[in-house]
């Protein structure tokens, strides 16, 4: 079985004011289909930078990144947009819903950019919201929903285009512990029942413990944990 994500010696540095920050100093990572990987690390360890490069939101300075066996470091911005659209589903700490837009339209958006016809979009987004227990919240605007509901909408949106990998960046960071536990349960269930590949980034040890495999980012390098 070939790896979904193959990263080798990825480096990324950026300037913050006068400071030259080396966020990633040679990260290598391999994710197999159906895995549930948690990446932890203290703040400033480069977690967000790694997440952005994993999700094709940013490019590495050096190193190899193969997505489904294809080198993506040389792809143009349109091809990267397509990779984000087809391969990844994003779940952000602050939910990242479009403001003043209904739950249904939020979930529809990736399909809109994938060129799916309107009726098909409505059907798929509605079904998914129903499945995640938000059937009665379809028409609500994003700011009319609670934090937990917003994160569920975000997860529905991440799943709607059948992604290969779900990328979750601190998905429980803005939620109370009970709601956060529900969200982690949901992720665990998606991985177990549907075989969804999940890469979870968190600084909470108990959230990371729910993953099948844990890795620790420390000073821009990735260390394996078991």
């Amino acid at each position: 079985m070939s790896a979904v994500i193959h990263m080798q010696d990825i480096r990324k540095a950026y300037a913050r004011g006068d400071l030259h920050v080396e966020a990633l100093r040679g990260v290598s990572l391999e994710v197999q289909p159906g895995e549930f990987v948690a990446i932890t690390g203290p703040s400033g360890s480069g977690k967000s930078t790694l997440m952005n490069i994993l999700g094709c939101l940013d490019r590495p300075d050096a190193g190899i990144y193969q997505l489904n066996g294809e080198d993506i470091t040389r792809l143009g911005s349109d091809a990267l947009a397509q990779a984000r659209n087809r391969t990844f589903g994003f779940v952000f700490q602050n939910f990242g819903l479009l403001p003043r837009t209904s739950a249904l339209e939020n979930v529809e958006t990736p399909l809109l950019y994938a060129g799916v016809a309107r009726q098909e979009r409505r059907r798929r987004a509605g079904d998914l919201l129903q499945k995640l227990g938000l059937g009665d919240r379809i028409g609500h605007l994003s700011n009319q929903l609670s934090g937990g509901q917003q994160q569920r909408v975000a997860i529905a949106r991440a799943l709607v285009n059948n992604p290969t990998v779900l990328l979750a960046d601190e998905p429980t960071g803005n939620l109370d512990s009970a709601t956060g536990a529900e969200i982690v349960n949901l992720l665990e269930q998606l991985n177990r029942d549907e075989g969804l590949t999940i890469v979870l980034i968190t600084h909470e040890a108990e959230v990371a413990a729910r993953a099948r495999r844990g890795m620790m980012l420390h000073d821009g390098r990735l260390e394996s944990q078991t």
Partner: peptide, 15 residues
Amino acid sequence: REIGIRMALGARQRD
């Protein structure tokens, strides 16, 4: 931020 979210969801520059 909205533009960023749309890009993360697959919007191309021309969209």
